[in-house]
Design a protein around this nucleic acid. Structure first.
Length: 505
RNA sequence: GGGCCGCUAGCUCAUCGGGUUAGAGCAGGGGACUUUUAAUCCCAAGGUGCCGGGUUCGAGUCCCGGGCGGCCUACCA
């Protein structure tokens, strides 16, 4: 409805946009999605009519007012379809012509194909479902400012096809992962997010406070220790997909809160976990991408099973020619590390030095997929001693597309050994490592009741989604990535009393 | 946290090494058009050039400070 024909509130200044007074229904029945129609009528000839009357709903994304005919394009969650609205047959034609880009409408009408071959609905009825008060972004360019896209995802999802697809695929990946694990008798559990000791990973936590208990609590940096308590409790195959929080810098690969899959599998070891990971990831690639060979960041990646397996020390030798070992002289090793640009600290032992050399010289060269195995004990406080190589542990990380995708090990199940490792971590903390792992005595007590041999795994799900959706920044696969709070809240375009600014968090 | 780059209309972008009234497309308003595809055409409107100082006869443009963002880098998954 436009200014001249529609009722208008007298109080409104005349320079404002026309005020529409639609009856907004409480519900609306659709009989089809746009994708269903596009698929069903793909063979319809130009200018043909079908006799099929359907109802669809969505947002008006394009409008071409041709005078006596208005062409609209409505988008729903599945795709788009044109609305062909001639004066003669369209109810409230002037109002239809006056719709804004971004308005939600419901349309009932016959499915036809125009002379120019565009599948269309010719409305016999239509209804406003929600008018937009704010102008939609440029219909061609959309939103290019990333900050605006992340803050106003509700708009980005409409105007950015890639965002929309990646975020829908994220949901599918989570769902498929759950189903895949459940089919293998893994049971999903939920463990606390509030931890009194932030442990289970090397990271700095966020802290908070519980008033009634008057205790400081941390947001978890990993669910690991709780999940292993469940293994002690007899839950033989458990997993959790949940948010963890690490108080660190942000980047294209890091969001302060991110989603981790952790699973624990009693009676298995890290070799079993490697098989599980390669099978899970390759099957997800088939489901999402239709192939186990994909292109990421313009480089090819072959996820087909089996993935390469190689020990950290062998890989270092392969990339640098250096033959290192965990029982080398510490200072000699430190000297080599310095040569490669490692900032060596006093408390670094041979294990930490080897890891640093690996990260500097080798990890950056890996594209993968490859399982890097047998990490030094010094940097792996929760993994079990290697069965044949003293000083190393049965731990691996999966490197895929040049990034760490997962971290896993044969779990350390011996309480005395675990206690000793915690003590080592405390010593490192005292020596200046703010990320050293916290001592958890209840976890030791749990282990004292006996934990069976167990393989454990953590996968950064956001990175997995990046991989499978071809996204190069984590913010493209997180619906609402962490951002600095908006300083100036948006002022409503028309009338401040109509819509108060959103509260600043 | 460090380095580099950016911020002009609701959106996407112009404005030569300082120089008159900062332009255009889209969106929004008015008008024309019965098969358009980012429809097209005509008209009118739309700006605290991120903010605050400074230099200058004159600053969107140069300098300083601040804010916000991007990329790279660091830590991690």
């Amino acid at each position: 409805m436009n200014e001249t024909s529609g009722p208008e509130e007298a109080a409104r200044p005349s320079d404002e946009a026309p005020i529409r007074s639609y009856e907004i229904p409480y519900r609306y029945d659709t009989t089809a999605t746009t994708a269903q129609l596009q698929e069903k009528f793909v063979d319809l000839g130009d200018g043909e009519e079908t006799g099929a009357v359907v109802s669809i709903a969505g947002r008006l994304m394009l409008k071409r007012d041709q005078g006596k005919i208005v062409f609209g394009v409505v988008q729903d969650g599945t795709g788009r379809i044109q609305i062909f609205a001639p004066t003669k047959t369209t109810p409230n034609f002037d109002e239809f012509a006056g719709l804004s880009l971004g308005d939600w409408i419901g349309v009932t009408g016959e499915v036809i194909k125009t002379r120019r071959g565009e599948l269309s609905i010719r409305p016999s009825e239509w209804v406003m479902l929600a008018p937009t008060r704010r102008p939609f972004p440029d219909k061609w360019h959309g939103i290019t400012d990333p900050d605006t896209r992340y803050r106003q995802r509700y708009v980005d999802l409409w105007v950015s096809e890639e965002s929309n697809a990646a975020l829908r695929n994220r949901s599918r990946i989570m769902s498929l992962t759950r189903r895949w694990l459940e089919e293998r008798d893994f049971m999903e559990v939920e463990t606390p997010i509030f931890h009194s000791i932030a442990s289970g990973a090397m990271a700095r936590p966020f802290s908070t406070h519980h008033n009634a208990l008057d205790v400081d609590l941390y947001l978890r940096i990993a669910p690991e220790l709780y999940l292993k308590r469940l293994t002690v409790g007899g839950f033989e195959r458990v997993f959790e997909i949940g948010r963890v929080f690490r108080n660190e810098g942000m980047s294209t690969r890091h969001n302060p809160e991110f989603t981790m899959l952790e699973l624990y599998w009693a009676y298995s070891d890290y070799n079993d976990i490697m098989e599980l990971v390669e099978q899970l990831v390759s099957s997800l690639a088939m489901e999402i991408c239709g192939s186990t060979t994909l292109v990421y960041d313009d480089k090819e990646l072959d996820l087909s099973v089996p993935w390469k397996r190689a020990s950290m020390l062998d890989l270092i030798e392969e990339h640098t020619g250096l033959v290192l070992s965990i029982d080398m002289d510490r200072d000699a090793l430190a000297a080599i590390a310095v040569e490669y640009g490692v900032e060596v600290k006093e408390y670094y032992g041979t294990g930490k030095l080897i890891l640093e050399i690996y990260e500097k010289t080798t990890e950056t060269q890996l594209w993968g997929p490859v399982f890097v195995t047998d990490y030094p004990k010094e940097v792996s406080p929760l993994s079990r001693d290697h069965r044949t190589s003293p000083g190393l542990t049965e731990r691996f990380e999966g490197i895929v597309a040049g990034r760490e995708l997962c971290n896993a090990f044969s779990e350390l199940v011996d309480p005395d050994e675990q206690l000793a490792r915690f003590h080592d971590q405390e010593a490192e903390r005292a020596a200046g490592d703010a990320e050293a792992m916290g001592m958890d005595l209840d976890y030791i007590r749990a282990l004292e009741y006996g934990m069976p041999p167990t393989g454990g795994l953590g996968i950064g799900m956001d990175r997995l989604v990046m991989l499978l959706t071809g996204s190069t920044t984590i913010r493209d696969v997180v619906l609402f990535p962490t951002l600095r709070p908006e300083q100036v809240t948006g002022t409503p375009p028309e009338d401040e009393a109509q819509a108060a600014p959103p509260p600043v968090e």
